[in-house]
Design a protein around this nucleic acid. Structure first.
Lengths: 339, 339
DNA sequence: AGCGCGATGGAGAACGGTCTACAGTGAGGC
DNA sequence: GCCTCACTGTAGACCGTTCTCCATCGCGCT
């Protein structure tokens, strides 16, 4: 009963205080079989009296930490809020909690540090890690990858229908009569053909749509620079070209918002149609009013967490969830006069 | 050497593979005293060969997890990105990592679950927890509170100079000739007088400035509703009053951005001067162009993490860091014609 | 030769839980 | 009266580290 100063009560303290064994206390807190009502009551009293809380570290060492780790890349932060929201919703009512691990630079490091026994499962938004490496990781801890268009082996995936979403954007812009449509996207490695990232597919669809429309000559691609979070300068450079685009399809809303800024900053305050992706909450703001693709980020986050919980229940065969997309047309494309 | 399928290598595996004891391996990975160059090399070889990574859970159980927990409230998310950025920067080059714990509802739960042996220190943005409870928490694990204007005992605090910041906003708005200035703030408990929250102080300064200017009769306070993240409806209600304000001082940028939306949505698209707080990156966007108070969020986050590291080094006397503020005047206040 | 000493490596006890195997106990069936 | 059995509760190993002794060894010194 005498707890050392500044230390929390342990299961031994509770056991001593309740006059039972540690194993008995463990049974009570785990709702395990073989506990008489009388003992349950005594133990619960002792727990309340001492303010006992089980040590996550000790639990994790033996079995589960009851924490799910969500790796959040620094870019595209606004979309992540949807994912987090959904994941939190999915674990409500379960003993599990979501913790976030901000990825500084190389995703490998963040993922590994999550896997170092801290969490029972990982949701990652790191499309660039090697598949073999990922399979290896998934052998140790359940993994759900967000936005990875490959055939998952050992892990699960949650993706949006990037083909449909990107095509909807392009059809919309082409339907408005735009011909000089540019694509604003992520730095090179993220869009490498065949890498299976959402941005690679959106770029690929952009190219395909331009080609189908006979606009191969008007294909223009601008990229956010790797070290700057903002895509403003990339967009500005695009608008300053001799033959500037009349429309920009941005790879996600954060870049689209940056493009809006770049357009607003031009000397003439040029009206250029701008579309984004993810339908983040800022897109609906009347001063931004951004046409964007809703890919149900919240639902994606919830599905990802649910899949992890299923794995922890014992599922072993891989699953994939594909979120449907819907184009939200707003003033950022419709109000721009076609130059 | 034979590692069970799907499990990571343990320190024992490394020890066996290198032909040394577990203690020796531990010494090597901790850079402890008493390691010969020869042994170091053999152990490091074995570590590389097996891809060994120490278990965080086991480390945490014995001593340190090398993780610092940052509790992030769901509201005012954009300000949090600054804090996270700063905290990450401060731990760069140390063995520590930042993990984020999104607070769902009651802060007590999130903080306790962080304190359950998961992290070596806690940065919290939960001004509403009871001081005695907090002191108790701080006895078990180092705690830095962000935005808590009390005299810390046992924990540290990082705050902005809310008196100066709020006064700068009010002086600015009054200087522009506004008389009907409203304050848009957080729900009731967060602004309770004497609670020492930033929002309580900003509200208090608002009242004081209005009173000093002889505008007691024009004091109008609107609050975000507790269950809605957005302050749009609160701002809309404000603008629909019979005697609507010509200026709104919003408690932070997210609410200010909501107020901008509400103003833009009015039938007349009313021009109302709007000022925020925190100078989030969106404030500088030309389509938002929000007057706001820069309180050096990144520096606050960095200071908070640094203070934790100091505590972990052994510091025991409490410290407080007060960030200076600077008003960034933008079009959201200067472009509005005074009604 | 005997001694002290710094340098090196190891043995083994924690840390706080979980979980398996087992002991005790009282009731019921024969 | 004895055996079986369901039900409770406990003992003790184990998870993967850290860390405090402790043993050993080579070496210089008296």
């Amino acid at each position: 009963m005498s707890i050392r100063k500044g230390r929390s009560a342990t299961i031994s303290d509770v056991a001593e205080s309740a006059g039972v064994s540690r194993a008995a206390v463990s049974k009570v807190i785990r709702n395990a079989y073989g506990v008489s009502p009388g003992m349950r009551e005594r133990v619960e009293d002792a727990i309340a009296r001492l303010g006992y809380r089980p040590s996550v570290a000790a639990r994790a060492l033996r079995g589960s930490s009851y924490r799910l780790g969500l790796e959040t890349p620094h870019v595209n932060a606004r979309f992540m809020t949807q994912i987090v929201e959904g994941a939190k919703r999915a674990v409500t009512g379960t003993p599990y909690q979501i913790i976030l691990a901000p990825a500084d630079g190389p995703e490998y490091g963040t993922l590994e540090s999550l896997a170092d026994g801290l969490v029972d499962g990982i949701i990652a938004v790191s499309p660039l890690v090697d598949q073999a490496w990922l399979e290896d990781l998934a052998k140790r801890v359940p993994v759900v990858m967000l936005g990875r268009h490959d055939t998952p082996r050992g892990y699960d995936t949650v993706i949006g229908d990037d083909h449909a979403g990107a095509r909807a954007v392009m059809r919309h812009l082409l339907g408005l009569g735009h011909r000089r449509i540019a694509h604003l996207t992520e730095p090179e490695p993220v869009t490498a053909p065949g890498s299976g990232t959402p941005h690679a597919i959106r770029l690929e669809v952009y190219r395909a749509c331009m080609t189908e429309a006979g606009l191969t000559g008007h294909i223009q691609i601008a990229r956010r620079t790797a070290n700057a979070a903002s895509a403003q300068s990339a967009a500005a450079e695009l608008l300053a070209r001799p033959d500037p685009p009349t429309a920009i399809f941005a790879g996600h809303d954060d870049m689209a918002v940056d493009a809006l800024a770049a357009a607003a900053r031009t000397a003439t305050g040029r009206r250029v149609a701008i579309a984004g992706y993810d339908n983040t909450d800022l897109a609906a703001h009347p001063l931004i009013d951004l046409t964007s693709v809703d890919q149900q980020g919240v639902e994606m986050g919830a599905q990802a967490a649910t899949m992890l919980l299923e794995r922890l229940q014992g599922r072993t065969e891989p699953r994939s969830y594909v979120a449907t997309t819907e184009l939200r047309i707003r003033a950022s494309t419709t109000a721009a006069a076609l130059g």
